[in-house]
């Protein structure tokens, strides 16, 4: 099986494709494939040329931290919960998320997610829940990994400068539902940085690794206006 990876050695260098042969276990995840290529032996490309180890980010390796978000065969996914067996012998193509600046190979700088939330001052501050509290929805919203998959797939999100995307909307929902005194302030910011420009493709919900019901968050936030 061949694994084609879009590589970029540093933020300023040009990207290029490199192809590797993978002959490891078929029950591996894509994260396992990257580890296998990197450390199974001295690393070389499919033609036998020595090359450098592939840069990628990981921490939990079980879908709980969002570090290994990348695009595999055209789909934004977490590498640790995407399995080789599901490609049925087809080659694998991996590239970094496109909506964020590349740091090294498959590692990208996702700090804009946090910076936007900080700039908009999205924080609970004090727990003053609204009466129609939906704990299950809040629990799922608070599981947001800030992995960036929802932004990668979003047709409206470009670079996070004006439209902040689903990760922002779900944190807005969480704050509004956990502290009702912030409802008005959240409603205004949400409208400006999300509600006004969201075209409701809802592709964000298809790729979310923790299945956040963003549509429900949107519905709740729209009622704040």
């Amino acid at each position: 099986m061949k694994v084609k990876i879009l590589r970029q050695l540093s933020p300023d260098s040009s990207p290029y494709w490199e192809i590797f042969e993978y002959d490891g276990p078929l029950d591996n995840s894509v994260a396992g494939v990257l580890d296998y290529i990197n450390y199974h032996d001295d690393i070389s490309d499919v033609e036998g040329n020595a090359t450098t180890r592939i840069g990628w980010e990981c921490s939990c390796l079980q879908g709980m931290c969002g570090a290994c978000a990348m695009v595999v065969n055209g789909k934004p996914v977490l590498a640790c919960e995407t399995f080789v067996r599901d490609f049925h012998g087809k080659d694998i193509e991996i590239r970094p998320l496109r909506k964020f600046p590349v740091v090294h190979d498959l590692m990208v700088d996702r700090s804009s997610i946090h910076e936007n939330l900080k700039a908009a001052n999205i924080c609970i501050g004090e727990y003053r829940p609204s009466e129609d509290t939906d704990f299950e929805h809040q629990y799922t919203a608070a599981k947001c990994l800030k992995c960036g998959l929802c932004l990668e797939v979003c047709p409206n999100y470009v670079n996070g400068r004006s439209f902040y995307g689903a990760a922002f909307a779900n944190d807005c929902y969480l704050v509004a539902s956990r502290n009702q005194s912030k409802s008005r302030m959240i409603g205004e910011i949400y409208g400006r940085a999300f509600g006004r420009d969201c075209s409701k493709s809802l592709s964000c919900m298809d790729v979310c690794p923790v299945k956040i019901p963003t549509l429900s968050s949107i519905a709740r936030l729209n009622r704040l206006k």
């Binding site: 946090h114 900080k118 608070a142």
Partner: peptide
């Protein structure tokens, strides 16, 4: 649920963010 650590992290991230701002 079974993600107590994650829920605490999410709350502390928001609280830290308040002071970051």
């Amino acid at each position: 649920g079974a993600s107590t650590g994650k829920q605490i992290v999410s709350a502390l991230v928001m609280e830290a963010r308040r002071y970051e701002a």
